[in-house]
Simulated assay, not measured.
Amino acid sequence: MGRKLKYAAATIVAVAAAIYLNNTSLLATHAGGKPVLLAHRGMAQRFDERDLKNDTCTAARMLPPTHDYLENTIRSMRASFDRGADIVELDVHPTTDGEFAVFHDWTVDCRTDGQGVTREQPMARLKMLDIGYGYTADGGKTFPFRGKGIGLMPSLDEVLKTFPGRRLLINVKSRDPAEGEKLATILNRLAAERRKLIMVYGGDEPIETIRRLTPETRTISRAALKSCLIRYIGYGWTGIVPDACRNAIVLVPINYAPWLWGWPDRFLNRMAAANSAVFVLGPYQGGEFSTGIDDADLFRRLPESYSGGIWTNEIETIARLAGR
């Protein structure tokens, strides 16, 4: 072997060793403690998730209920915290009377006894609806929650007042930057310490507005998350954290996690240093975003002694598996 070839080989070995040492979790500090549990929509009714489209009425394909909690309600959120959730995710829509309604769907037609676009109605009218009206697990033969959800749609203000010391993740459902301005105004009215407990994700335009107007609030949008993960996979081996991953909510599909440099501990430490919170989701397989860590099989795919965040639709199950 010639001198130049030996030098090139030695250089390659040295670079590979440096990359390994800079990214192996074997040499990283382990944060310890139990994982951070995020309850998606609180305690909620599950539904058949196959072949979902944006306009699918999920209440009409509910699975046989095992409890009587309805998503995005005060009762549901309280039950989630009681069962071990550290954070509850909730969905919001602006209303015509200046509030934010806590409700998932773009229209009220599917779940409630009302009609029309959610954001085109006043909160007072939304308060009159029965949010359990449309749930059925047998094709419309029975409606077990009909009549039991009247007045249960809360406003964001109610949620903030009910859970003043709790961590929340707010989902902005539109791509309207004006909605970001309205939510930023509400967040900026809160005390700084309270504001630190709230994160926001959703459409690119409102999230960019919130990121500009309330820069200390951790946020993520689909475009920002894609940029964060792709760039980190590309050059995260250097230890450099992309700007899109800073002061952010980093959602990691469990099947993508092994591709992240330094996974798990080195990666978690880098994100923590960038003031970002990491949550592992269920597998991403294209199309709509992935589900949560919702059963024992997926939970077992997490690294041993994992101490980062877990996104789940089954807080009771995952809290038990996590030792809560």
Rank of each mutant, 00 (worst) to 15 (best):
M123I: 13
F163R: 13
L160P: 00
R83Q: 15
A124F: 03
E99K: 13
R111M: 00
K127I: 02
G98C: 08
I87D: 01
H93D: 13
D138R: 15
N171C: 13
M153L: 14
A124G: 02
H104E: 15
R111D: 01
E120M: 03
R83N: 15
T112L: 04
F145K: 12
S155C: 07
G98E: 04
D157M: 06
A79Q: 12
I170P: 05
P154H: 08
A79P: 09
T118A: 10
L126D: 06
P144Q: 10
D157Y: 04
T107Y: 00
I87H: 06
T112M: 04
G114V: 04
G151L: 03
L156E: 09
Q115Y: 07
W106P: 03
M153Q: 11
L152Y: 02
D86I: 02
F81R: 13
H104K: 07
L156H: 09
T142K: 06
R146G: 05
A124C: 01
K173W: 11
L152Q: 15
G139W: 11
R125N: 05
S76M: 11
L152D: 01
V88F: 04
A124H: 01
A85F: 14
L152V: 07
D97I: 08
L156T: 07
T162S: 08
G134D: 04
G98L: 09
S174E: 11
T142N: 13
F103Y: 15
F100V: 00
F103G: 14
D82Y: 03
G147S: 10
E89S: 10
T107H: 06
G139Y: 00
R167K: 15
K161I: 05
S174Q: 12
P144A: 09
G84L: 02
D91C: 10
R166H: 08
V88L: 10
R111S: 07
D86W: 02
A137L: 02
G84W: 00
D109L: 11
P122T: 10
G147E: 11
D130R: 05
F145S: 12
L156I: 10
I87S: 02
L90N: 04
S76E: 11
G151T: 01
S174G: 12
M153D: 01
G116S: 03
S80D: 09
D130E: 04
I150N: 03
M77R: 03
S76F: 09
K148I: 05
C110G: 00
T136R: 00
K127P: 01
G147P: 15
